[in-house]
Amino acid sequence: MERQVFPFTTRGGFVEQLAACLPRAEHTLRLFDPDFAIWDLGGSATDAVLRRFLKAGGRLQLAAHDGRVLEREAPRFLRLVKDYGHAVEFRRTSQSLRQLTDSFCIADERHLVRRFHSDHFRGEAVFDGPADINTPLERFLTIWDESGAGMFANSTGL
Score class of each variant (00 low, 15 high):
Arg72Leu: 02
Thr9Lys: 12
Phe6Tyr: 12
Arg122Glu: 13
His111Lys: 07
Ala64Val: 03
Leu18Gly: 11
Phe36Tyr: 00
Ala19Ser: 13
Pro7Phe: 03
Gln61Arg: 03
Met151Ala: 09
Phe140Asp: 02
Met1Asn: 13
Ala20Val: 11
Val113Lys: 04
Val113Leu: 06
Asp33Asn: 14
Gln4Val: 13
His117Arg: 12
Ala125Lys: 04
Leu41Glu: 10
Gln17Thr: 14
Glu16Asn: 13
Ala125Gly: 15
Asp145Lys: 01
Ser103Cys: 14
Asp102Trp: 13
Asp40Met: 01
Arg115Gln: 04
Asp40Tyr: 00
Arg110Thr: 10
Glu71Phe: 00
Arg11Lys: 10
Arg72His: 06
Gln4Cys: 13
Ala64His: 01
His27Gln: 15
Phe32Arg: 10
Gly148Arg: 04
Asp40Phe: 00
Gly13Leu: 08
Leu18Asp: 09
Leu158Gly: 00
Pro23Ala: 06
Gln95Leu: 15
Arg24Ala: 15
Thr156Glu: 12
Thr93Ser: 01
Leu112Gln: 05
Leu100Arg: 11
Arg52Tyr: 15
Glu16Trp: 06
Cys105Gln: 07
Arg98Glu: 03
Phe116Asn: 12
Ala131Cys: 05
Asp83Glu: 05
Asp66Phe: 02
Gly129Trp: 14
Arg3Ser: 07
Val69Lys: 00
Asp145Met: 02
Glu71Met: 05
Thr135His: 05
Ser147Gly: 07
Gly57Thr: 12
Asn154Tyr: 01
Phe36Val: 00
Ala63Thr: 06
Phe53Cys: 09
Phe14Tyr: 06
